[in-house]
Lab assay of single mutants.
Amino acid sequence: ICKIPGCTKRYTDPSSLRKHVKTVH
């Protein structure tokens, strides 16, 4: 789960989550 407030994205893969946070936030 993405911990950024207001973001509801969920990831099972930690590397995908990290990439999401870097690119989207």
Rank of each mutant, 00 (worst) to 15 (best):
T12Q: 11
T12D: 15
C2R: 00
C7P: 02
D13L: 02
K9W: 12
G6N: 06
K22A: 15
V21F: 02
D13S: 06
Y11T: 11
V24L: 03
K19M: 15
S16N: 10
D13N: 08
H20G: 05
T12I: 06
D13P: 00
C7D: 04
Y11S: 14
P5M: 04
H20C: 04
P14E: 14
K3P: 09
K9Q: 11
K19P: 04
V24T: 11
S16Q: 13
D13I: 01
S16M: 11
R10Y: 08
S15E: 14
L17S: 05
K19R: 11
K19S: 13
S16P: 05
T8K: 05
K3F: 10
I1W: 00
K19H: 13
R18Y: 07
S15Y: 07
H25W: 01
T23C: 07
T8E: 09
R10S: 14
H25E: 09
I4F: 12
D13T: 06
S16L: 13
H25C: 04
L17A: 07
K3N: 11
S15P: 03
D13A: 01
T8F: 10
V24G: 12
K9C: 09
R10D: 11
H20N: 06
H25D: 05
K22M: 13
K19I: 11
K22V: 12
C7S: 02
T23H: 06
T12K: 11
T8M: 11
T23I: 09
K3L: 07
P5A: 07
S15L: 07
I1K: 03
R10F: 08
K22Y: 13
I4M: 04
L17V: 04
H20Y: 00
K3S: 12
V24F: 09
R10C: 13
H20M: 03
K19W: 07
H20A: 06
R18Q: 14
P5W: 00
V21W: 02
V21Q: 15
T8N: 10
T12E: 15
K3R: 06
T12A: 12
P14V: 10
V24K: 10
H20P: 04
K19G: 13
R18D: 15
I1F: 05
K19E: 15
T8V: 11
P14Y: 12
D13H: 03
C7H: 00
S16T: 10
V24H: 12
T23N: 10
T8L: 10
K9R: 06
R18S: 15
I1D: 11
I1L: 05
V21C: 04
C2V: 02
C2Y: 04
K3M: 07
R18H: 13
R18N: 15
R10V: 13
V24C: 12
P14S: 11
P14L: 12
L17D: 11
K3E: 11
I1S: 04
S15V: 12
T12W: 04
H25G: 05
S16K: 12
H20Q: 09
T12R: 05
C2L: 02
L17Y: 04
I4K: 01
R18C: 14
C7Q: 02
R10W: 08
K3V: 08
C2E: 09
T8Y: 08
D13K: 00
R10H: 13
K22L: 14
C7A: 02
T23M: 09
R10K: 14
C7W: 00
R18P: 09
P5V: 06
H25Y: 00
K19Y: 13
K19Q: 15
H25I: 01
V21N: 02
T23F: 06
K22H: 11
I1N: 08
C2F: 03
I4G: 05
P5Y: 02
K3W: 08
C2Q: 06
T8S: 09
I1A: 02
L17M: 10
G6W: 01
S15C: 10
R10P: 05
R10N: 12
Y11P: 07
V24W: 06
K9I: 05
K9A: 15
H25Q: 04
R18E: 15
V21S: 06
P14C: 08
T12Y: 03
T8D: 15
T8I: 09
T12N: 14
H20F: 00
R18G: 14
G6K: 00
C7V: 02
P5S: 10
T8Q: 09
P14T: 09
L17P: 07
T23D: 13
I1V: 10
G6T: 01
P5D: 05
R10G: 13
K3Y: 14
D13F: 00
Y11Q: 08
K22F: 08
K9E: 09
L17F: 04
C2S: 05
P5Q: 06
K9S: 12
C7F: 00
C7N: 05
Y11A: 07
K3D: 14
H20S: 04
R10T: 15
G6M: 03
H25K: 01
K9L: 05
H25R: 01
C2H: 03
R10A: 14
L17T: 02
S15F: 06
C7M: 01
K9G: 09
V21K: 00
K22I: 12
D13Y: 00
T12V: 05
T23Q: 13
K9M: 09
P5L: 01
K9H: 09
K9F: 14
K22S: 14
L17C: 04
Y11E: 10
Y11N: 11
S15M: 10
S15K: 14
R18I: 12
K19T: 11
D13E: 11
C7E: 06
